[in-house]
Design a protein around this nucleic acid. Sequence first.
DNA 1: CGGTTGTTTGAACTGATTCAATCTGTGTGG
DNA 2: CCACACAGATTGAATCAGTTCAAACAACCG
Lengths: 238, 238
Amino acid sequence: MTSRRSRSAAGGSVPLGEALNGAGLDPALTALFEKMPKRVVEVDPRRPFREPGVARNEVFFVNTGLLSKYKSDGAGRRQIIALRFAGEGILPREGEADYGIQAIVRSEVLVAQQRDFDPIMDAHPELARFFLRLTQRHASISHEWLVNCGRRDSTARVAHLLCETAQRSGLGQSQDRMVNPFTQQQIADITGQTSVNVNRVFADLERQGLIRREGREIVFEDWAEMRRVASFSPAYLQ
Amino acid sequence: MTSRRSRSAAGGSVPLGEALNGAGLDPALTALFEKMPKRVVEVDPRRPFREPGVARNEVFFVNTGLLSKYKSDGAGRRQIIALRFAGEGILPREGEADYGIQAIVRSEVLVAQQRDFDPIMDAHPELARFFLRLTQRHASISHEWLVNCGRRDSTARVAHLLCETAQRSGLGQSQDRMVNPFTQQQIADITGQTSVNVNRVFADLERQGLIRREGREIVFEDWAEMRRVASFSPAYLQ
DNA sequence: CGGTTGTTTGAACTGATTCAATCTGTGTGG
DNA sequence: CCACACAGATTGAATCAGTTCAAACAACCG
């Protein structure tokens, strides 16, 4: 089922409080966020959720599943610019958002209003420091993606995304398999290619003995070599 | 002269206090930063300034000129991941930096120690909110660069960079010319191409009547068409 | 079963790279 | 002032990685 698939891809449910505490937030402040009025929304994959160019006065938190932020160039070619795994969130910014949001897999998302969020920030300015750190981490990931798109060949790009995904979905070190949450089109939209080529890259990776595909699962046959091909070093994930 | 070139490309000098005030910081806090111990450093372009993989316990502020943050893939191919124009800065982050810093043009940079910076942040937690906004802006620029590298053809990528540079260096609306601060190799490192191709793209842009080159200066002959080719809409710059 | 969504494969094409050579402008030392 | 060195820009030819278009195939779901 789609929802099971989402859960396992994202490493299970990560409740708000647990995630904030885990990221180093003072439990007293965590409690404030837990009390903040919010809706729980089930988001279907690859369906419009939030469109670009609309005022974005909401705060999102991914309980389970996987969200993507996307933009498109003038000609409508789509580029996924960021992912939010379970336990991560999306902060608002002045003005209208230049990006849209879609789910990669069926996701459970907490949606709060900026007008409920802002007073908490105002009352506890030390919170901004916490969110500054999280934002810096995401910036660091964006930078790695830029290296990926700009300087690596198509095989390395896909391999790198798989490595990052395995890591970020909280796969245990012992785990050597992962439910691939992406369609090949989505991988293309992340790595700046066409789905046709992504398909060929997958076939290559398999032929080289780096991965094996079993239905939706990807088995990493040679993690060390995989990392090397992808030139993946997880430092940028902190 | 190189230093004049840097100044005009970056739209002149932007002193620390003025920049922070201009970005919306409380003048009382601005004063704290102005009192913070710091060195003034002249940085030569395309020379090592800060290497990747080293603990980065400093804060930088660009007084005049233009800095770049760069990373490289496994094979040593270089990608410039961000620019800092006059009036912008670079914050530290836990652990060792995964990126290096180099000047694009000769720059005057203020360098402060994190240990002098942190106490100010500690004493004035509302500061983090200010830096959060700045960091979000840079993240937004990274995302646009991702669209650029991932989805636009080589002509649009170069055109987009030129548009962004014109805008960010604070060129007046009336201004239709700009000193190009980049070498073609640097443009290649930003847009994920080779310098050879960048050269051909420049020739194309000129042949299409979008720009004219006069020495180091670029004259925008048809700004509207340039924006269209680049699919440049400056909203992401805020 | 039929509709939908995603994957796989082939053939032709093209934008960009690679490698190598040449040209140009600028700064330096004699 | 000239000779030289150096960095960057320009050009050509061969090659190749990735796209495009089109069609077939597979899985899933009501």
